[in-house]
Design a binder for these strands. Structure first.
Length: 566
RNA sequence: GCGCCUGUAGCUCAGCUGGAUAGAGCAACGGACUUCUAAUCCGUAGGUCAGGGGUUCGAAUCCCUUCAGGCGCGCCA
């Protein structure tokens, strides 16, 4: 594997044995502009340990450092040591590596033999799938792809919200105002109507709440009428969710939701008792977390029924047994941060050393015109509607730009859905986002369609190029600003994937794809590729092929299918 | 009241675990299609990095503090 940074780190290490190669590796950075070289070592930090001014350190290193094949020039500039690559060699090695590794380019086998459980999406049964759920779904899906790319075995778990008092409410509403035909005909939309109606009516008549609670209690006791209705609601919901997942191309290995853990709770409560962690407070059972600066974690309500913390604890213990995970990752809204901290601590107090392997990956909430989304008030944007709008708009663009395209419908589907996913993975996940139709349906600039378009452009050039058997090329012919810059950006892909993995941050990939696309489009605009000069054409084609591979690999990591024609 | 998160161009956001002159896209304006897909490219304009202190050779980045917004804090998940 070709890694210039490592080569440079080693050369510096020879001069400065007091620092490890890894330490030096981490100090190396990419200078802000090309005149400052390709890689730089700031010497300011070394100043203290070496008891010399940084300028002098840089100068000494520059004159003593041994000649390296990959480096043309080493230049000390006001405390920085700037390395200038041997461009042809760098270009050759970088492109060769990409062209050889193909769909493996960017991956490192760091996860061999390790299992990651990723808990994502987790919509609530009988409630519509809206923009808010999309984030968990696409972030989780992308993290899963990234981990798999790095050699981990991944278990995607959809922890369905399929248990709780809301089903009591739904049963009451169904019995009072609903009927079988309407539900069969309109699915979740009808269930949501009933749910919203329940809350409206319950404000006038609080007795409804009691009724709902008693229906839920019947469910917990195994009452067959209640459970049949529950199962029916669940089937209807899952069928509709499946349509969305198919459209998004998101899949799970397990749909074990909340109800799955019903019969696993008693054992957990028993264990907590035995380990002396449970404490009675105001009639309820809690784990006191005061000495850790947190409010108590509630395990049992006054009436003896369990809560979501109880379920999460049971689920974690089950997953550890079932999958023996290396890490278990929970992709949920930032609003739940405290909840996760609390029950992670409970797991730790129970004496499980793997408590440290539980990771909460929070993300900011989605609002709608400054207002919080609320299923109960019916204030939501349905994901289905967003996706179909995006597909419709894509189709319009195709009709006007490329009406002869084959299978327009299919391309529009991938492109439109991809645009929505891309925009959701575009900024740091922790940021709150305000949903805007304008933004989601804008296909210019830093967007999914822009990257897809660029990928298709690469494919198109490659298709039109004459066949050639020899894969070699002359890297000396790729020395212009645009060509070299593109090459340097392509070189960074493995680092970016690694960063996305350690930071659990898919947006690093998304942004990187835009960088690649920008660099490629500049190159494409400046330099004709399919020229008569066979040498030049072959060299530029190698660059196009490498770009295509990198874009395709990155797109797959954020859950998009790279398109060959748009 | 306590805790967590956020604050960078008119708007949406990057800024790599402290580094060189703070970068993109959108919107605006002006250019580039007889030539590999113009969903593209080039140029112009746009900044007290919320305010104030501190640490440091160096701060958008770390610490303290104020302000603004969001989210949490026992019987929902």
């Amino acid at each position: 594997m070709f890694d210039v940074k490592d080569i440079i780190a080693q050369a510096i290490h020879k001069q400065l044995p007091e620092l490890s190669r890894d330490q030096i590796y981490d100090m190396l950075e990419y200078p802000p502009n090309p005149e400052m070289g390709d890689i730089a070592l700031p010497c300011f930090k070394l100043s203290k340990t070496l008891r010399k001014p940084p300028v002098q350190i840089a100068q000494e290193l520059a004159s003593n450092i041994s000649d390296m094949e990959f480096i043309d020039k080493v230049e000390p500039v006001s405390g920085y040591l700037n390395f200038f690559f041997n461009k042809p060699l760098f270009v050759e090695q970088t492109l060769k590596r990409i062209l050889e590794e193909q769909e493996r380019y960017g991956s490192q086998p760091i996860g061999q033999g390790k299992t990651i459980v990723i808990d994502y999406s987790a919509p609530n049964i009988a409630k519509p799938f809206h923009v808010g759920h999309l984030r968990s779904t696409v972030i989780g899906n992308s993290l899963r792809k990234i981990f798999e790319f790095m050699g981990y075995r991944c278990i995607g778990v959809n922890h369905l919200g399929d248990w709780g008092t809301q089903f009591g409410k739904l049963i009451v509403a169904y019995k009072l105002w609903g009927n079988k035909e309407e539900v069969e005909a309109h699915g979740i939309k009808e269930l949501m109507r009933l749910y919203v109606k329940f809350h409206e009516e319950a404000e006038k008549d609080p007795k409804l709440e009691d009724e709902a609670r008693s229906w839920f209690a019947r469910m917990e006791k195994g009452d067959s009428e209640a459970l049949e209705l529950w199962q029916w609601f669940k089937d209807i919901s899952l069928k509709e969710f499946q349509k969305v997942y198919d459209l998004l191309d998101v899949h799970f290995d397990s749909y074990a939701g909340e109800s799955f853990y019903n019969d696993k709770m008693d054992a957990v409560i028993e264990e907590l008792k035995q380990k002396n962690l449970l404490k009675e407070s105001e009639g309820a059972m809690i784990v006191d977390l005061e000495e850790y600066g947190m409010p108590p974690c509630m395990i049992l309500k006054k009436d003896g029924s369990s809560l979501y913390a109880t379920r999460d604890i049971a689920a974690a213990i089950y997953r550890k047994k079932a999958y023996d995970f290396h890490k278990c990752i929970y992709v949920t809204g930032a609003a739940q941060s405290l909840h996760f901290q609390q029950w992670f601590k409970v797991i730790e107090l129970m004496g499980y050393e793997w408590a440290k392997d539980l990771i909460h990956v929070p993300f900011g909430l989605v609002s709608l015109g400054g207002e919080k989304l609320s299923t109960r008030k019916g204030k939501v944007v349905l994901l289905e509607d967003i996706l179909s709008e995006a597909i419709k708009k894509t189709l319009e663009i195709i009709e006007s730009k490329n009406p002869d395209l084959e299978n327009k419908e299919e391309v529009a589907r991938y492109m439109g859905v991809g645009a929505v996913i891309f925009s959701d993975l575009y900024s740091n996940r922790i940021k709150d986002v305000s949903f805007s139709w304008d933004e989601v349906l804008n296909f210019d600039g830093e967007t999914g369609p822009y990257v897809q378009y660029t990928h298709a452009r690469c494919c198109s050039v490659i298709r039109k190029a004459p066949e050639q058997e020899d894969s070699s090329f002359n890297p000396c012919l790729l020395q212009t600003k645009e060509e070299y810059q593109l090459c340097k950006t392509l070189y960074q892909f493995p680092e970016k994937v690694m960063m996305a993995l350690t930071q659990l941050e898919p947006s690093i990939i998304t942004r990187y794809l835009v960088d690649v696309a920008q660099d490629f489009n500049r190159f494409y605009h400046e330099h004709p590729i399919l020229v008569d000069d066979q040498q030049l054409r072959t060299a530029r084609l190698a660059l196009v092929k490498a770009t295509r591979i990198t874009l395709a690999n990155g797109l797959k990591l954020i859950g998009l299918k790279p398109l060959e024609r748009v």
